[in-house]
Design a protein around this nucleic acid. Structure first.
Length: 574
RNA sequence: CGGGGCGUGGCGCAGUUUGGUAGCGCACAUGGUUUGGGACCAUGGGGUCGUAGGUUCGAAUCCUAUCGCCCCGACCA
């Protein structure tokens, strides 16, 4: 490709709307342009990168017995009503009507479509297993699109659905996908971790997320370097605490703590560690037909994990109760709630709380706390269940080594669905004994543009993108320092022709621009290799080959350029 | 949806407080000088100041409404 013809307008300045590096560089280097909030046009360079990612995904899906199809974007409401998600999916679903006032939506995911397809076409155990996938544009009316390509309202996703006869079959499919995903992201040249995830509203019995490690990510994960434990913070757990040793239980006592509301205030006022405090929060749990208030007790140095709480309560939504409600329930202003004598609501306690000896808790009256509170003697919970966020340094639940935390971008998610959709949509097959059974399903997604953005988040420097070779839009760019110089131009064109003939994906910067401009653009666009044709090396009869990643430069003979380029590219294909 | 911020040429911004008919840098075009890390000089083109009402002799500027965009939160494969 000739730079003079390439449609990749670069920007010197950072557009004001771009906050994260992937967004900034993809805009500046001419890969994408925004069409509306969370809706982007992919320009030629981006489209090449996306194709490369898709090609890797296809190969691995096919290798794992996936079969590619293309399903509709436009979904009739009936299928979504049948699964119940027409109501449940909420405002995130893009809805529309046709000219006859019939309801449709734009597909945010395709469980309904694929399950409806399967129920018509799969009838016997002989038809299973099947693994069907597509790469297709999805629509989700996100509450807040953000971070450029990382959270869009329209995006390309690979989604595969597995259909099995039983749990064992599902386990096979799930494992096959787990391995395929690991290969995909490895082949894309990305640093990632597969983590245990909350399966959320999608439901099912198991789920892993594939997280590309990057500081700007929306996900926080906890992982152990000593064993292979890794989980999204939403569901990460820590090894159970053992009984605190030795300390003798003292008589409970009320102390005055005027205007000491927060954990920090109380710990410094009473000179006790936050670990000795019980943080008591009042939550409102919302169900389909009712609401319920609960008190949640975690250790003073902990944060409540609202996902765990929501799951434990099996509620549709949960939210912190407002100040008036807290006062009504506890009889005290916010900041003085405690589990002792709290009888208007049930109490859910984190296991760490009940082993504290001589704890400090709110007294349920203004400006007072209780000290030397002990579980069992002074109060009891209606349920003791893990409700906290783990933090770095907590012991690993598997091996007790110290957990670490890091941020990342969720690029893939695999779910065991079980019969959630097959039962709702009546997708059954006849087993070997002639009995009708629901098909056991799994669903497995990869965000393609998000993967591209995640790669940029992970692979860049102050000058621009540094593409991993497997997903780079072009492998090498040739920069004649002065294209108008006959000798440089001829040699550059010669090398270009040779590389093209050898099948190397090459750009030649044939623009009448100053060298600096071409270098800057090449760095910004992130091609892994750069060939510089200029007087310096030309006078020695050599060509310069430079590695974008670390600036390594080789002076090679003209006749060896193609081989050297091919060698360096091959060396960087995981 | 709650909180905050912003809409002025393709991009980045000034001008708004104090109303007087739009400006700077980049990019773009032409000519010249340059040419190994975003050159310089000269000339030039391009903007109903998001939109709609209102106030006023006069509105980018004041008022009202509305649309769009960004950030934080809630939410979310």
């Amino acid at each position: 490709m000739r730079m003079s013809k390439l449609f990749a307008p670069t920007l010197r300045e950072v557009p004001a709307e771009a906050e994260v590096v992937s967004h900034q560089y993809l805009l500046r280097a001419g890969y994408i342009r925004k069409t509306a909030a969370g809706v982007y046009s992919y320009l030629p360079l981006a489209w090449r990168v996306l194709h490369k990612i898709e090609a890797i995904v296809r190969q691995e899906m096919d290798r794992a017995d996936g079969q590619e199809v293309l399903l509709p974007v436009l979904h009739p409401a009936e299928l979504w009503q049948e699964s119940g998600r027409w109501d449940v999916y909420g405002k995130e679903l893009f809805r529309l009507k046709d000219r006859h006032e019939r309801d449709f939506c734009l597909g945010p995911t395709h469980e309904e479509i694929i399950t409806a397809l399967a129920r018509g076409e799969v009838s016997s155990w002989r038809d299973l297993p099947k693994r069907i996938y597509q790469i297709q544009t999805k629509f989700r009316d996100e509450i807040r699109p953000r971070l450029g390509l990382i959270r869009c309202r329209e995006f390309i996703m690979k989604d595969l659905y597995s259909f099995d006869r039983d749990e064992e079959g599902l386990a096979n499919s799930y494992q096959a996908m787990y391995e395929a995903y690991s290969r995909i992201f490895t082949r894309c040249g990305l640093k990632f971790r597969a983590v245990e995830a909350d399966s959320g509203a999608i439901g099912g019995t198991g789920s892993h997320e594939f997280i590309v490690l990057a500081e700007t990510g929306e996900s926080v994960i906890a992982y152990c370097e000593a064993c292979n434990y890794a989980a999204n913070l939403e569901r990460a757990i820590t090894a159970p605490v053992t009984e605190a040793a030795g300390e003798e239980q003292l008589p409970m006592e009320k102390v005055s703590t005027p205007a000491q509301h927060t954990i920090e205030e109380v710990t410094s006022f009473l000179q006790v560690a936050a670990k000795k405090l019980v943080k008591t929060l009042i939550y409102r749990a919302i169900y389909r037909d009712r609401e319920q208030l609960v008190a949640v007790a975690v250790r003073g140095d902990r944060d409540v994990n609202e996902i765990k709480l929501k799951n434990a309560l099996d509620a549709l939504e949960i939210e912190l109760a407002d100040a008036a409600t807290v006062e009504e329930v506890t009889g005290a202003p916010v900041g003085f709630a405690g589990p002792v004598g709290l009888n208007k609501v049930s109490i859910m306690a984190d296991p760490e709380v009940i082993v504290i000896v001589n704890a400090v808790v709110g007294a349920n009256e203004a400006d007072a706390h209780l000290i030397n509170v002990n579980y069992g003697r002074d109060w009891t919970a209606s349920q003791v269940i893990d409700l906290k966020n783990v933090t770095a340094g907590d012991p690993c639940p598997h091996c007790s080594a110290s957990l670490k935390t890091t941020r990342g971008i969720e690029v893939g998610h695999i779910f065991k669905l079980g019969t959630k959709y097959s039962s709702a949509l009546k997708a059954t097959y006849l087993d070997e004994s002639g009995q009708s059974r629901y098909i056991i399903m799994g669903s497995y997604g990869i965000g393609i543009p998000r993967t591209m953005a995640a790669a940029v988040e992970q692979c860049h420097d102050k000058d621009g993108i540094i593409w991993p070779v497997p997903i780079a839009p072009y492998h090498v760019t040739i920069v004649p320092v002065n294209y108008k110089d006959d000798r440089q131009r001829q040699l550059a064109e010669e090398i270009y022709a040779e590389l093209m003939a050898a099948g190397v994906e090459t750009i030649i910067d044939d623009r009448d621009e100053r060298a600096g401009v071409k270098f800057k653009d090449a760095d910004l666009m992130g091609f892994p290799l750069r060939i510089t044709v200029g007087p310096r090396s030309l006078n020695e009869g050599k060509i310069e080959l430079r590695l974008r990643a670390d600036g390594t430069t080789w002076l090679v003979d003209k006749t060896e350029v193609v081989t050297k380029v091919q060698t360096e590219i091959a060396a960087r294909q995981p």
